[in-house]
Nucleic acid binder design. Structure first.
Lengths: 241, 241
DNA sequence: AAAATGATAAGTGTCTACAGTTATGGAAAA
DNA sequence: TTTTCCATAACTGTAGACACTTATCATTTT
């Protein structure tokens, strides 16, 4: 077989959290991470530093830096004799990730209920309205973005930088699943209903209620996703060998 | 001032989780991490790659790899114009870390209650007994090790690799605080009493009870530590400038 | 045809060199 | 003496080279 691995260019916007124009190492990190979480590099594929370096027009050094960081963050799995492969996620990995998210995000909601200032609620309500409008217009492609923005606003209210970072990391790990729920119009409606209730509880500083609502929100999402996978409506990354 | 930064050698054993003899990059990672969490490199000190490289007898490349990973994991804070400084922890960082730990570790206990096999309880009970003997003999220097081993055995029962890794990371971040609680004989006794109750609940598969016990266990630890810091009995890293 | 062998290619880990940038310190100017 | 300015030193980021290890594949051997 010819050496013709092509790494496709940007499909749709991936949330780059730290977009201060960075050095090559960090740029490489974000780009490669995108390719992985989107499945553009299939699970099980070995990472070849020189290949990536060439395809990005830079030297191996910054690529290497990026690859090792991705290894440390769990997106790549080290091989016994050096190098990495793209990690694949089995159903139990996905369940695990949803469950930990349910713990962390519900805790963030708990903190948000206690710590938010009143003015900070309005932007969240606006996101909910916007989401609703997109639903009513059947404009489904906006939903993923609005959903992400809603959650990011929400977590910020927890005032816990560490917690937020952990949540983002977990979300990125299952980035490729993010649209499954919202593609079902019924689930999308249910989701926004949840959001309303969550904001309601937070606004009234009912921390325990908010916590419980978020936990159930995420666990319902988990059940739906797992079911879709089991029914074969969604394919998760398979090892390419 | 002369260039004479000396990085002291190993004081007491730091738990190296992956001690398969690694490449220089990973060795450097572990070594530098130790220096940081033990405060051998003071908070606020800028990391100088060539300095570390020389002191470890290797080139800058593997050191650089290690330093960047430590940056990604939060042990080092990036400087606006390149390079890193050792991050310092304020009281609120410490509170934050304890709180997230309380969430994650209590969840691990919840899972452990549901997922453990019966034979796995005995080793935990033995650790508790050993801890008790050390207490009775006033052999306090063993307590930190036994405590760590107990908790590691416990988390393993959760069968959730991701969760365990997150817990370890958080524990490492406040490694330098680990002895404060156990240095108080009263708190150490209380701690082992907690451990007994926790194992009891887990053995009976009372998941919710175990969860609650662990949460309170950790939050009590937090209160104690914060108080010691406030009273000035313990000094947390200060920026060296 | 299957298995063993060895040359070659592929790939990581490590080192060194160098460019560009920021900090330092001392001499010149006020 | 204090401030300004410039040369120099100190570092990081990036590239490229090389050594060593592992995989590949054609050729020989059985």
């Amino acid at each position: 077989m010819e050496k013709q691995e092509i790494y496709p260019k940007r499909l749709d916007p991936f949330p780059i959290r730290s977009l201060k124009k960075e050095n090559l190492g960090n740029q490489a990190f974000e780009q490669i991470k995108q390719m992985i979480v989107r499945g553009e590099i299939p699970a099980g594929k070995r990472i070849i530093e020189s290949e990536l370096a060439e395809s990005m027009g830079i030297s191996r050094t910054p690529v290497r830096e990026a690859v090792h960081k991705l290894g440390a963050e769990g997106f790549l799995k080290p091989l016994p004799k050096g190098g990495y492969v793209v990690r694949g996620l089995g159903i139990s990995d996905i369940e695990e990730t949803f469950e930990i998210r349910s713990i962390l995000e519900s805790f963030a909601a708990f903190l948000a209920a206690n710590r938010h200032r009143h003015e900070e609620i309005l932007p969240l309500e606006e996101k909910i309205e916007e989401f609703q409008r997109s639903l009513d217009n059947n404009d489904l492609k906006e939903l993923a973005r609005l959903n992400t923005e809603f959650h990011e606003l929400l977590y910020a209210l927890s005032r816990s930088q560490r917690l937020i970072k952990m949540i983002y990391n977990l979300r990125d790990e299952i980035y490729f699943l993010r649209k499954i729920i919202l593609n079902s119009i019924d689930m999308a409606r249910l989701s926004n209903k949840d959001h309303r209730e969550i904001i309601n509880a937070i606004e009234k500083r009912q921390a325990k209620t908010a916590e419980m609502l978020v936990r159930d929100h995420i666990l319902r999402g988990k059940e739906f996703v797992i079911n879709e996978i089991r029914k074969g409506n969604v394919s998760i990354n398979h090892h390419s060998f």
